[in-house]
């Protein structure tokens, strides 16, 4: 039978202001992401030659501008936290054992943190000059 077998333990009173901020974050990040992602899709995939234009040079060209660096770092942070928080609610809904729930949630946040750190590092420390061809063509690499 698809029901919960035993009467449930009383609700634990966890005053999680956190849930309120989490809920708000999902709304606002969602709205911002909508703009960022559409912008991303238009620039990367629709304008110019479309998907065929994406190569190292294209990325290097974009990240040469601080605007796109900020744009992409923002998108990275917002999307990863948004997605991880979404996964967290699903985990909270569907795990029955507390230990499993905790393990899954810790894993989620660790992975999320790692990806954010890694992604941000890539964005911020990006060096277009590591590529031979770029070194030849870009002014900044010649100095």
């Amino acid at each position: 039978m698809v029901t919960i077998e035993t009467p449930r333990s009383p609700r634990s009173r966890k005053h999680a202001q956190w849930e309120k901020w989490g809920w708000l974050y999902m709304r606002y990040s969602g709205a911002v992401l909508l703009i960022l992602i559409f912008g991303h899709i238009v620039i990367n995939l629709l304008s110019g030659e479309g998907i065929k234009q994406i190569d190292f040079a294209f990325v290097a060209g974009k990240w040469a501008s601080p605007f796109w660096q900020v744009y992409d770092v923002l998108m990275l942070w917002l999307a990863l936290i948004h997605g991880t928080n979404g996964m967290r609610t699903i985990v909270n809904d569907y795990t029955e054992r507390e230990t499993v729930r905790k393990a899954l949630n810790y894993t989620l946040w660790i992975v999320c943190g790692l990806l954010i750190v890694l992604g941000t590092l890539v964005c911020v420390t990006f060096d277009p000059c590591i590529d031979q061809a770029m070194r030849a063509s870009l002014e900044v690499c010649k100095g």
Binding site: R11, S12, R13, H15, A16, E19, G22, W23
Partner: peptide
């Protein structure tokens, strides 16, 4: 509102 601003409250 405080009661419903809970882990198991309206945010679910």
């Amino acid at each position: 509102l405080e009661i419903l601003n809970d882990k198991e409250g309206v945010w679910r």
